[in-house]
Simulated scan of single mutants.
Amino acid sequence: MTDPFISTFEDAGHEGPLAGLRLAVKDLFDLAGVPTGAGNPRWRETHGTPGEDAVAVALLRAAGARVVGKTITDELAWSLNGTNAHYGTPENPAAPGRVPGGSSSGSASAVALGLADIGLGTDTGGSIRVPASYCGLFGLRPTHGRVSLEGAVPLAPSFDTAGVLTRDAATLRLAMGVLLEGVAEAGPITRLLAPQDIWAEIPEATRAVVMAKAESLGLPIDREPFFPEGADPSGGAPGRLDATPLETARVAYATLQAWEAWQTHGGWIEANAPEFGPGVAARFANAAKLVSADIEAAQRIRSGVTALVRERLPEGTALAIPAAPGPAFTIGDQPNREAIVRLTCIAGLSGAPGLAVPAGTVDGLPVGLQLVAAQGGDERLLELA
C-alpha cells in the first residue's frame, strides 16, 4: 500500500469556522506554486504551475482549513478503483489489503488514516460516494454546479462535481457549508424511497446491513419501483430493449461520460501520447470511437432519468440505496464496474446531490448508505446525516 500524499505542506492556516482542521487536496485542484498532476506524470510535464489556488481550495483555506498535502488520484479521475499505475494504491485502513476506491482515493485514504480531517475530492460517477463507502467515511457529491470547479482538471463537465470526505457528519456539514453556492431547497427530509427494483440487484449481505441503516433513520420508507413498470427506458435506442431500466441508465451514463471525456482530453492525448494504466487506457480508446447517434440516444435516456428524479423525489423525499454493491475489493482483483455505476448513475445523470454515510460492515469491511435528493437538496441531506 502507498502513502496517500504526492506532496506535503506546512500551511499556517487562518481563522474561521474550519480553523484547526487539516485539508487534503485531490491532485486535480490547483494549489498556487504547486504543479497539478491529475494522476498522470505526462499531464504534470505538459502543464504549467498554477499561480493561484482553485476556487474550492481558496474557500476552504479562507475559512481556516490548513492544507497538509496533495493526494493521489486515479488518472484524470476516470476510475472508481483507487489504483494508479504510476503512483500506487493509497492505503485503506478500514479494509487492509483492499482498495480505497477512486478517483478521490488519496483524499479518502488521508482522512481514513487520520492524516487529514477534510478530504477535497471530485465525484463524476461516484468518486466521492464509493471511496466513502469503502473506507467507512461520510462524503457528499453536491448538486451539479453548486460548488465551483474553477481551477480543477475536468473529466466530463456536465457530470463533474466537487465535494468532501470526512470521518464525521458534523465536519462534513461544516466544510460543505463553506463550499455550497446558491439557495437551498426548503423543508427537511421526511420520507425515504428504497425502490424494490434497485434493491433487488444488491447482494444479500450488503442489502441487510444497508437497509438496517436506512431503517434506523426513523423515517417512513416506501419501496415502490423507481422505474415505471412497462416503461421503455431505451429512449428509442436500438438494441437496448432487453436491458433492465437501471442498466439502460448506466449505459447512457457511461456513453455520455466517455463522450465528454474524449472531447475534454482527446486532443491532449493525441498530441502527447501519455502512458495510462490498462483500465483508463481502454476507456479512452473506446471513447474515441463514439459517434453522434450514440450520444443522441443517451441524451434521451438522461432526460428521462432526470424527469423521474423530479417525480420520484419531491421535496422531503430522499432515495435510499447502497453507495456500492459491497465492500472494497482486494487489490489486484477486478471489480464489477457496471454494478457500481448502476448505483451511482442516477445522481450523475440528473445532477442531483448524493450523500454517502457509513452503514456498518459486511465481514468486518465497511459498506455505505447512499441518500439522493432532488437538485438543491444538499443541505437537507446534510441535516439528515
Rank of each mutant, 00 (worst) to 15 (best):
E91V: 13
G82T: 07
V67H: 02
G126C: 13
G88I: 05
P90S: 08
A184Y: 06
T161E: 04
E204P: 10
A194S: 14
G151C: 09
E181R: 15
S148Q: 11
P157C: 12
R66M: 12
V147Y: 07
V147F: 07
A132W: 04
G163M: 08
V111F: 06
P96D: 11
R141S: 02
A205Y: 09
R129M: 05
V183Q: 14
S105A: 15
Y87H: 15
R129E: 01
Q196D: 13
A162F: 03
V153H: 02
T143W: 12
P157M: 12
G151L: 03
G101I: 05
A132R: 01
V153G: 01
A152E: 05
I72K: 03
F138N: 05
G88L: 10
L165E: 06
L120N: 01
G119T: 08
T83V: 15
I189N: 03
G97F: 10
L140H: 01
P188V: 06
P93G: 13
G187M: 13
D160C: 10
L155Q: 09
T171S: 08
S127R: 11
G64V: 07
L174I: 05
P203G: 10
S109L: 11
L179N: 03
T73F: 01
P142S: 11
L113T: 04
S107I: 00
G101T: 05
L80H: 07
A184R: 13
P90L: 04
A152G: 06
V147H: 09
A112L: 12
A156V: 12
R173C: 01
I128L: 15
G151V: 03
G163K: 02
T143I: 13
L120W: 01
A77F: 00
G82A: 08
L192D: 04
A108V: 04
P154Y: 10
S107F: 00
A194P: 06
S148L: 11
P93M: 06
P93K: 11
W199M: 07
E91K: 01
S104F: 02
W199S: 09
I118L: 14
W199H: 06
L113Y: 02
D123W: 07
L179W: 02
E91Q: 05
L137S: 12
G187F: 12
